[in-house]
Simulated assay, not measured.
Amino acid sequence: MDAELGDFLRSRRARIQPEEVGLPGHGRRRVPGLRREEVAQLAGVSVDYYIRLEQGRGPSVSDAVLDAIARVLRLDDTEQEYLRTVARPAATRRKSVSGPAPQKVRPGLRLLLDTMDKAPAFVLGRRMDVLAWNALGDAVVGFSQMPPAKRNMPRQVFLDPHARELYPDWPAVAAETVAYLRLDAGRHPHDRQLATLVGELSLGSENFRRLWADHQVKEKTYGAKRMMHPLAGELSMPYETLTVSGEPDQMLVVYTPKPGSQTEERLKLLASWTATPQTAGS
């Protein structure tokens, strides 16, 4: 994760132009954005200290220094959280040497999914693995048709040949997926299954490799997604993502079609074609 910290800092200073922080921008520059010595100067630390930090060989870094670097690099709240996580991985290193425990969805949450018969909903776990879903969620996305060992949203987005047909705004969906996966990797730097997933996606998708190298991080909270369903047609659905109480690595994702909209009517038709509700999880 030391390399992860350096890569993240380099990617973030590359996007800040000198003129934006009151520095002269004229003259030749070998790298885009700010130089390391400029970040150090603006953050109020020595150049040697910042270089050692970016190279992953510095001492334990204080909140004040991280706050100053975050200010200089104009990090948003999610990026600041990520910076702190990758800058202080010691506590994480002591955990899960043998790998994370199997992910399970508690019965009450499964029951909640089944009662949500008007909105597609599903539960995501670590690495964006799909752990459970309701009948309408399955009808929209097709979770039950995925091999259980491959039931994972990044795999669907980047390795499913039909993903670009399902998601008309595929570039945006792909970028958001990678940004959250990168955030998850920062929180769990020694998750071997995640490392395997990243390797699989990197080998299978040039787009994933490019987006992963960009080091964007983004929390999954709420938004909107368009889908082109093979039976129901175009679906335009806002969504809300809720952290499951007692299970911080699990998220309940619920699509919330606008009342009276064409999407709501199409989902009703799709629900009428759906067989007996199916929920599943690992």
Rank of each mutant, 00 (worst) to 15 (best):
Q193G: 06
L231S: 10
Q262W: 03
L194K: 09
S205C: 13
P277R: 11
H229S: 06
L267H: 01
T221D: 12
V198T: 08
V244E: 04
K225A: 03
N207Q: 15
K220N: 08
K220F: 12
Y239W: 05
Y222P: 00
A213N: 15
V244R: 02
Y239T: 00
Y222F: 10
V244T: 01
A224R: 10
A195F: 05
D214P: 00
E240T: 07
V254N: 01
A275Y: 09
V244L: 08
S202P: 12
A275E: 11
A271T: 05
E206H: 13
T256N: 05
R209A: 15
F208A: 14
R226L: 11
A271N: 06
L211C: 13
V198P: 08
F208P: 14
R210N: 13
G260Q: 10
E247A: 04
T274Y: 07
Y239I: 01
K225D: 00
D249G: 01
E264T: 11
L269S: 11
M251Y: 06
E247F: 03
A232C: 04
S205A: 13
L235W: 05
T241F: 00
M227Q: 11
T279F: 08
H215W: 14
A271I: 03
P257S: 07
K268W: 11
T274D: 13
D214R: 02
Q262K: 02
H215S: 15
K258R: 08
Q262N: 03
P248G: 02
G204Y: 14
G199E: 15
R226C: 02
L252A: 02
Y255L: 06
G233P: 03
R209L: 13
G223E: 06
Q216S: 15
T276I: 09
A195D: 10
T276S: 14
E234Y: 04
Q193N: 10
A195K: 14
E264K: 05
E234F: 05
P230M: 09
E206I: 13
A271V: 07
A232P: 03
G223S: 04
G233R: 00
G281K: 06
Y222Q: 10
S202T: 12
Q216D: 15
H229V: 05
W273I: 03
G223A: 04
G260L: 08
M237F: 06
W273G: 04
S261Y: 05
R210P: 07
V254P: 06
R226A: 06
R226Q: 09
L201A: 05
L269Q: 10
P238A: 03
Y222G: 04
F208R: 13
W212A: 15
M227Y: 10
E234I: 07
F208I: 12
L211F: 15
L211E: 14
Q278A: 12
E247V: 01
H215G: 13
G260A: 09
L201F: 06
T263R: 09
